[in-house]
Write a protein that binds this DNA or RNA. Structure first.
Lengths: 193, 193
DNA sequence: TGATCCATGTAAGCCGTTACATGATTGG
DNA sequence: CCAATCATGTAACGGCTTACATGGATCA
């Protein structure tokens, strides 16, 4: 059984390989890509998980590491994916672990719209609208700037469609949700209950 | 400063209170509700997190506990939310911790559609379509069955709109994505590279 | 007769975040 | 002049999952 003990890639390791697939990068750059780029759909990892993951990947031969000395700053450690790393990435992708998932604190607030102060519902709706709007703008921006392959455009489109639908629903129904919340004048009701 | 040390509610604790807000329940029932009901948007917690959370909530006076002895089974421990628990829930909701988030392994596969075997892309698309379809059906089902308040209908509608938009995009663009993947005949390309 | 439902809980361990430690350079 | 950017890493702590432990009743 000389079969390589492939994968066992943690989500963060998978993310690193995915980003490195496009070209070499440092831990710092990977963090940025995971927050800003079109990789934000997966995990947004912190340094505390990226650096150890990178070290482990280097140890396992999934990436190679090259140091670039700089004055006044710690040496840049530039990582490049290896053939083995690519294979491991494709294997991990093909294995396809989990279902997609939404995690929405906003919807929990919405569900209790009748119980929380109206101002809270209004704030939550406003916040979410702001977020969706900026996210859509951001999507358009990265779609127009820089060249993207077919697949990248595809997922960008996917994101745009979902968020646009969200926003449309929100715009059409925000008033109805806010109306459910106890009116300011009824504040005493809550206090009295 | 006699102010109560409110919240510090973990996500799972918040979920428990949210479910108990509608009526008393056991840990077992909470687990089910978190997986099946319209609470699946938040966290789907396991027993290993629910039972300790419940114990802690009881300890903090957020819930009360009543035992129902049964033959052949461990005693049912039925929890009810208290006034303090309700307050803590509303406070936690009003604090509104995090942004909503998508976590999509599917989109990662899609992003690498050009690199993974076509069969993997096809499987991922099929799996996702199946999931969206059943999820939408499930939403319709719980929407029609049982009475729901305005807010519950609102979030059900929100989910339906998002997923319907997802599905529509998928149906319209699945072929394009699959076309990006290396055709079966080109399998040697991958092996040769 | 074998799986699934009911029903509770504990212990180990993974995986990740947060906070800390350090510090020059650049832009507003 | 202050904030942000660049740049790497460690240590402590937290929360959740997994697996374990137990076992009768019900349904196919």
């Amino acid at each position: 059984m000389t079969e390589r003990d492939t994968d066992n890639l943690s989500p963060v390791a998978t993310l690193c390989l995915a980003i490195l697939h496009h070209g070499e990068a440092t831990g710092y750059e990977i963090k940025k890509a995971s927050v800003e780029g079109d990789f934000s759909y997966f995990v947004d990892a912190s340094y505390g998980s990226i650096y150890p993951a990178l070290a482990r990947l280097a140890n396992d031969g999934h990436v190679t590491q090259r140091e670039e000395l700089q004055s006044g700053r710690p040496a840049r450690k530039v990582y490049s994916i290896t053939r083995r790393g690519r294979d491991a990435l494709i294997a991990a992708l093909s294995a396809m672990p989990g279902e997609d998932q939404f995690r929405s604190p906003f919807l929990l607030v919405a569900k209790f719209a009748g119980e929380v102060p109206r101002s809270v519902v209004e704030a939550a709706v406003a916040e979410r609208r702001r977020w969706l709007t900026s996210e859509i703008a951001h999507l358009e921006e990265i779609a127009s700037a820089g060249e993207h392959d077919e697949a990248a455009r595809w997922i960008l489109g996917y994101g745009r469609v979902c968020m646009t639908a969200s926003l449309a629903y929100l715009d059409a129904n925000a008033a109805a949700l806010i109306a459910v919340a106890p009116a300011p004048a009824d504040a005493r009701k809550l206090a009295a209950e």
